[in-house]
Design a protein around this nucleic acid. Structure first.
Lengths: 230, 230
DNA sequence: TTATTGTTGTGTCGTAATGACACATTCATT
DNA sequence: AATGAATGTGTCATTACGACACAACAATAA
């Protein structure tokens, strides 16, 4: 079979938005560019799509390269293709966003890539249209976390309800009522009491829960209404 | 500035999923391919991205070419990039989905392109991975219509509540309670009584409503919980 | 040992939303 | 005038939700 004769071929890149949770606020893993243009500026981690590589595989390759992590939560966000979005040459960028437990990443990889966890809320300027990408990713995160239990992807295996609440408060940048939150979360039946307590606390030690994986998987696509007034 | 030297360039296509509503069921506007491979099979309407054209502009161009319509509801669905998805040559496809009033399209354009409205539910096989695209688009439609008032995009300017209900029943392939549906829809305040009645009815003529555009735009991003148990 | 302080866990109460369901109205047909 | 099919509106019991108060716990200080 002969190839399509007409039509121009374009550069296709993958950019990754990597969210983490520091306990108080949502963080973004970005790299400091060490090449022109925009050398020294902050940028999302990215790369070009290899010739014989599926998009999702490319995203996982890039995520692994920076974090040393496999099997993390990744989903395709959107594709950005404005003609002049990359000043060097027209490049279509397929953007993915990932949620990781911030304590699990490989620090050596991060150092090698000149990467850093920055505050999402008070983030510095990013290159090109990466700013817009992050905006849309945050929207998606808020949207999704209000309806599906994806927040857990940002927490360690064992976590307390107050920690979980802090996470949701960070995502939506709002205060939540402790009692109503707890009631709602527990009513999902997704949490299993481990019997252990959070020993790091200086006051009353909160119970550590873990996710009921089976219930999580089977109920993932059901709708929850976690947030009061989105 | 010099261009990126490394990295291969790929074909980038746009495919469009076009939904319409026939009064009883959801329809899909597809074309019969008149070239190889897969000549004679059903396919989504698509095209390649032009060198100096934004993705959204390309989508609108392709949609206009087939339907003769401008300013319709379009949103980016997802990008499909499996290595072998197109047997001819690797092609990345950015997929958009559009909602139109089925009675507004230009019939001449449809004839020229060998296009036809087919039933979504009992659809024939589609080429390549277009089947998967439609599946995901339907999921998105269901997801979105449960939370945002996008259903109206599929109806004529003036419509009755029973028509609207039929639409939702078609989208979700389920029966809904007349009284509860009506209550819920009216409580949104999005509908304005035109004072007219549906004269096509052989029994009691239902009141024709129109959308309160201002309220629609301002409340579009709010969450509704239209559907009972998704 | 006891009091203090900050945090966690659980319960109540009134209101609003929801699903299940029944009855009256309208209009063409007979 | 009666019939039948579809539309419009109302009720009721249950549940979910937001606002709020109090008891239990653990480290620290007195």
């Amino acid at each position: 079979m002969n190839r399509y004769p007409h039509s121009t071929r374009l550069l296709v890149a993958i950019d990754c938005i990597i969210f983490g949770f520091g306990g108080e606020e949502i963080k973004l893993l970005v790299i400091k560019r060490n090449f022109e243009p925009e050398r020294g500026k902050w940028s999302l981690m990215g790369g070009f799509v290899n010739e014989e590589e599926d998009l999702e595989v490319g995203a996982e390759r890039i995520l692994f390269e920076l974090t040393g992590l496999n099997n993390i939560y990744v989903e395709q966000l959107q594709t950005f293709g404005k003609v002049n979005r990359d000043p060097v040459e027209r490049t279509i960028s397929v953007v993915f966003f990932a949620l990781i437990n911030i304590h699990n990443h490989d620090e050596e990889s991060v150092r090698v890539h000149n990467a850093a966890w920055i505050s999402l809320k008070n983030r510095p300027a990013l290159i090109f249209d990466h700013e817009k990408m992050v905006e849309i990713a945050l929207e998606r995160l808020r949207y999704k976390a209000a309806l599906h239990p994806i927040g857990f992807e940002l927490l360690p295996e064992k976590f307390t309800i107050p920690q979980l609440q802090k996470l949701y408060e960070a995502i939506y940048d709002m205060k939540l009522d402790r009692r109503n939150f707890s009631r709602k979360i527990l009513s999902t039946g997704l949490l299993v009491d481990t019997g252990e307590k959070n020993e790091n606390s200086a006051t009353k030690k909160a119970t550590l829960y873990r996710l009921d994986k089976e219930r999580y998987e089977s109920k993932f696509h059901a709708f929850w209404y976690f947030m009061p007034d989105l």
